[in-house]
């Protein structure tokens, strides 16, 4: 199927979100609850993507050291925590994954 209509709609909604208060001429205050809730969007959404990517393979939970993505992800998390450097985190994580995939039995 073509994804263009869905992406066009997603783009339109994103544009409407960005235009919202600008178009309202700044007369409307953002509700305080919304402001507080939005601060939790990054931690919640990012973790909700990260956890299954590292822990689940082919629909099964894999918590052991034999899971290359989990081990590489934990190493990358340590780098991210210490350095806050996006590029270094990606480089170390990919390097770790490649080494583990070469070493671990499939």
């Amino acid at each position: 199927m073509s994804w263009m209509p869905a992406l066009a709609l997603a783009g339109l909604i994103t544009f409407a979100t960005r235009l919202s208060f600008i178009a309202l001429l700044g007369r409307v205050e953002t509700p305080p609850l919304l402001t507080r809730a939005l601060r939790f969007v990054p931690p919640a959404v990012l973790s909700a993507i990260i956890f299954p990517e590292l822990l689940v393979k082919d629909g099964a939970l894999r918590l052991g050291l034999g899971n290359a993505r989990l081990v590489a992800g934990v190493i990358a998390a340590a780098v991210a925590w210490r350095t806050r450097n996006v590029l270094l985190t990606i480089a170390v994580g990919m390097g770790a994954l490649w080494i583990l995939q070469a070493v671990l039995p499939r």
């Binding site: 990054p42 931690p43 993507i49 996006v86 985190t89 990606i90 990919m94 490649w98």
Partner: peptide, 19 residues
């Protein structure tokens, strides 16, 4: 090359400043 793994890695890097 498992380049799809760059996605969780990018998000791992972005989540720590949010905590």
């Amino acid at each position: 090359w498992s380049l799809d793994f760059t996605l969780p890695l990018t998000f791992i890097a972005l989540v720590f400043p949010a905590l």
